[in-house]
């Protein structure tokens, strides 16, 4: 039976098992490869997307349990504009390998939506589930502060 999933404002009818994790639906069925596979056990945050505006680990959310619109990194900014966090990521030259950065940005976007001017402690608390093996944390922190000032 087909399930309907709304991603980045577009509805998709999907003939996939409801227990399939959203991560693989996005990557393999919809071709939205900006969301990354890192660990499969919600320990690294590389797969972070928004469901109903809230950051979730898409490797742990079953397709059948998705009850609201999904936003991925591809849909975070406007059609022809970047989200302030993406602008800050570029201005602060955050990424190294870049593999974790989609998840980092989606997690940070959730943080700024809830707390427009986060303290360092709030940033730590929000971002600790997002692993970066390149060690870009200092620039991530700076970029979040910079974006917060603009939001």
């Amino acid at each position: 039976m087909a399930l309907t999933l709304v991603v980045n404002g577009r509805a998709h009818a999907l003939d996939l098992p409801p227990e399939m994790p959203l991560l693989w639906v996005l990557r393999d069925a919809l071709g939205l490869t900006g969301t990354k596979y890192g660990c499969g056990v919600a320990a690294c945050g590389a797969c972070t997307v928004h469901i109903g505006g809230q950051a979730v680990r898409s490797c742990q959310v079953a397709l059948g349990d998705v009850a609201a619109e999904v936003t991925t990194i591809e849909g975070l900014g406007g059609a022809s504009s970047l989200h302030p966090l993406q602008e800050a990521w570029i201005a602060h030259q955050v990424a190294q390998c870049g593999y974790c950065q989609s998840g980092q940005i989606m997690q940070a976007a959730d943080l700024l939506a809830r707390s427009p001017a986060p303290t360092d402690d709030e940033i730590d608390a929000a971002m600790d589930g997002n692993l970066c093996r390149c060690g870009t944390y200092p620039r991530i922190r700076a970029a979040i502060h910079a974006a917060a000032a603009k939001v």
């Binding site: 939205l32 490869t33 900006g34 969301t35 990354k36 991925t72 990194i73 591809e74 900014g77 970047l82 993406q86 990521w89 570029i90 030259q93 955050v94 990424a95 870049g98 593999y99 950065q101 989609s102 940005i105």
Partner: peptide
């Protein structure tokens, strides 16, 4: 400015 930075900040980078 790193040449890979925009793609890596928007999910467009192809790994």
């Amino acid at each position: 400015p790193r040449l890979d930075m925009p793609a890596k900040s928007t999910g467009r980078a192809v790994f």
